[in-house]
Computed example of a mutant assay.
Amino acid sequence: MGRKPAITRSAVVSAAIEIIDRDGMDGFSLERIATALNVRAPSLYNHFADKTEILSEVARAVVLETPRIPDPAPGQWRDWLIAESLEFRNSLLRHPNVVPVVFTWFPENLLHKLYAQYSRLLGDQGVPLSRQLFLLEATHRMTVGSAMCTATGRPALVELPPNGSVEPSEGTSVAVRDADEALFVEMLRAFLVGVDVEGGN
């Protein structure tokens, strides 16, 4: 009978996310992960080739936290795409220190799978094939870019402070954070309404 492994891939990824959430990338190391799991650092190489593979799995795990939105009713694909994008952005911002990791090591194979799935859905909604990838790639970039700005301390400037400085005071920074999500939704909606889908809904 084989001996049960001391650690698993999922445990390593969970420990890595917890460390980055708490201490940022400056606190991330194989030694810190091993300590959290009460093992020796070289044992991690039984599960991962190197640190890059761990970070790739961290990015994948955070992306997969995003809940799915029910398929849209006829003619409601714009609202559905906004809701999907907002859920993804919120999932990223639950781990602000991990957002740069997701940005760098985004799971492209997962993205391609989602694009294929979402393209079929948009096609069922009457969005022509020539516009499907454009819509998905544009909203994806807007979502990741917005999350990256917010996670790294640069939320959208809703309005300039009265003195004209672009550095918000403590009071204005709270207002900016509160309005950041609403501005993201407004930005997406303006983009989607302005896209010519050649007779799509």
Rank of each mutant, 00 (worst) to 15 (best):
T8P: 03
R9H: 09
S10Y: 05
A16S: 14
A16C: 15
I17E: 04
E18N: 06
E18P: 06
I19G: 03
I19C: 08
I20C: 10
M25K: 15
D26K: 04
F28I: 14
F28K: 06
S29D: 04
L30R: 03
R32D: 12
A34F: 06
A36K: 10
S43H: 07
D50P: 02
D50Q: 08
K51T: 00
L55G: 03
E57C: 03
A61N: 04
I69S: 12
P70K: 05
P70R: 09
D71Q: 12
P72G: 06
P74Q: 10
Q76K: 08
L81C: 08
S85D: 13
L86Q: 02
L86V: 07
L86Y: 09
R89G: 00
N90W: 06
L93C: 08
N97R: 10
V102R: 02
T104V: 11
W105P: 01
H112E: 14
L122T: 02
Q125N: 03
G126Q: 02
L133F: 06
A138D: 10
G145M: 08
T152N: 11
T152E: 11
G153W: 02
P155S: 10
E159R: 12
P168E: 00
S169V: 04
T172A: 00
T172I: 14
A175K: 11
A175D: 12
A179C: 05
E181K: 01
A182D: 09
L183E: 05
F184H: 01
V185L: 05
V185D: 03
L188N: 04
V195F: 13
G200R: 12
N201E: 15
